[in-house]
Amino acid sequence: MMDINKHNTHILHRFEYHAPVTVTEAVKLLKELGSEATILAGGTDLIVKMKDGSERPRHIVNIKQIPGLRGVNETPEGLWIGALTKISELENSRVIKEKLPVLYEAVRVIGSVQVRNLASVGGNICNASPAADSAIAFLALDAVAHITGPDGDRKVPFGEFFTGPGRTVIKEGELLTGISVPRDVYGWKGYWVRVARASMDIATISLAATAKMDGGVVKEIRLAWGTVAPTPMRTDNVEDYLRGKKLEQNIIEKAASLAASSIKPRDSGRSTGPYKRKVAKGFIHEALTRFAEA
């Protein structure tokens, strides 16, 4: 939380302003300006950082005028979500609510109504906070990030997208154009939970869990965590352990313990490792108990 008394939050520093209207134009600008340029989408992360002085870009490249980067569309492969799509549009999408419950649950609690009306999904991801709520859900859903840059387009699975707190694989000159979610994960059960000190505060620890069940047996499962490591992370070993198993009490207990020892929290001012491990155990317990029902 910034110390607002030390800063003037009423004004922004002067910057050179650019508003490209095509992806090609944006890429060209970003490449030319290099490290002096910062992309502006909804601004709910960037403007706060500019106000508290932690970011002071010389050039702002506002990408909101670029058409075609906004919307939730079904494709033969699954769902395509443009990077500029507002969080509120994800919340109101019928297909997300019906087919991807874990994503729906994650986005509907981001910030407030006003924040969700401004914030873009691309910004939530590219800001690369280990707590970013939509990012945790996308990681669980085997989503893929679509990036365009001077060398053309590339696709990066979410598991490889984050490289550290505030850092992603996106290089100078590149931008995120969208996110795709494979059809394979449609209709899986979803469970999403986070603990924060207060509502609207960033998560202290969160879990996005989604599973394909057959009776009480786990066919497939994905477990993605927020704020238990420098980046959003999956616990593959717990997923492997659970695959093919019937969710009986002893299996659930074992999976919960395994998860608690697999996450990688660090002691920080916000909360402590041992606390997070205990909470993680509880989260897995709750998620699997729900998946076992009906």
Binding site: T9, Y17, A19, L40, G43, T44, I47, V48, N62, K64, S88, V113, Q114, V115, N117, L118
Partner: peptide
């Protein structure tokens, strides 16, 4: 028609 925060938006937007 959508509620937004004027303190977080550039006027040009």
């Amino acid at each position: 028609g959508d509620a937004v925060l004027a303190c977080m938006m550039l006027a040009v937007d």
